[in-house]
């Protein structure tokens, strides 16, 4: 859409809080297209982690959608949020852009993973998404964002536009990270051999690492062993805030494998063990 738009009430608004030895949903508001059923306790470490699987009743995102999600993670709470399946972004009419905004706030001592399945951009899709994270010192956020393109008729038609902005603040007004892409096509030459792309951001401001740079280098070396994937980890701006991972895959499977590998390594760094399988059927 062009021009200023009225503010949209969040269709999904979750607050996660620590209650004794568990994390619970302290606020659980959702409406179309989001659906929330039961939550899960799948992890041995940390044992208080709550897993939330988001579903959508629409099954896809359409041109006129303006979606808002909000997550608040209190001190001591730990949560993993995923989606049931890949998010299909369908065509938008000329002059119309699908909008999605996700706001995440993590208090000191909170731990939050937001690892949705990748987006699949259909021909003439136009998406503008923003993920804003405010992670207090002593909190942890792990966010992934990945996409690929797909033409069901295999006619080589592309998406119309993709703008994606990740903004990270660590308790202050100034953004530590503003990671933005704004494209109307994928690259040419060797880049055209890669069909899926992803980014992960680990924010852990104030955490004491033996060597975050050594962890990033080791993670890059592990990612290099995954077939059909080109990826690397690197320290975020401020260089004490956390690290980012860039992934380019010859297909979506390779990017998914890279995200899983990075997630395993980060869980091992924080809790000593990788996460249990969360296969969704």
């Amino acid at each position: 859409m062009t021009g200023p738009q009225p503010e949209v009430r969040a269709q999904l608004d979750l607050a996660l809080a620590r209650r004794g030895d568990r994390t619970v949903l302290d606020r659980r508001l959702f409406r179309w297209p989001f659906v929330l059923t039961r939550t899960f306790a799948l992890d041995r470490a940390p044992s208080h982690m709550l897993t939330v699987i988001l579903q959508t009743s629409s099954g896809a995102t359409h041109g006129e959608d303006r979606l808002r999600q909000r997550f608040h993670v209190g001190g001591g709470a730990a949560a993993h949020v995923a989606t049931q399946g890949a998010s299909l972004i369908h065509r938008a009419a000329p002059g119309v852009t699908t909008e999605e905004k996700i706001a995440i706030r993590i208090e000191e001592g909170g731990y939050f993973e937001y690892l949705p399945e990748p987006r699949i951009l259909f021909p003439d899709a136009a998406l503008d998404q923003t993920i804003e994270i405010d992670c207090a010192v002593g909190g942890v956020a792990l966010i992934s964002d990945a996409f690929t393109t797909h033409d069901p008729e295999a006619r080589g038609r592309g998406f119309r536009s993709l703008a994606s902005t990740m903004i990270l603040r660590c308790g202050g007004d100034d953004a530590v990270l503003v990671d933005r892409i704004d494209i109307r096509s994928l690259g040419q030459g060797r880049t055209a051999q890669f069909r899926a792309f992803g980014a992960m951001t680990l924010a852990a401001p104030g955490r004491r690492w033996d060597s975050m740079a050594a962890f990033a280098n080791a993670l890059s070396a592990t990612l290099a062993t995954i077939p059909d994937l080109y990826a690397a980890a690197s320290l975020l701006p401020d260089e004490t805030a956390g690290l980012g991972v860039r992934l380019a895959g010859r297909d979506l499977r390779a990017v998914r494998a890279g995200i899983q590998t990075a997630w395993n390594a980060i869980r091992c760094e924080f809790y000593g063990v990788p996460p249990p399988s969360r296969r969704k059927g």
Binding site: R180, I181, D182, I183, G187, R190, F194, Y230, A231, A232
Partner: peptide
């Protein structure tokens, strides 16, 4: 708004 998309170069 400044942006970039050079994933292979960045990696």
């Amino acid at each position: 708004a400044p942006s970039s998309f050079t994933p292979l170069i960045d990696i």
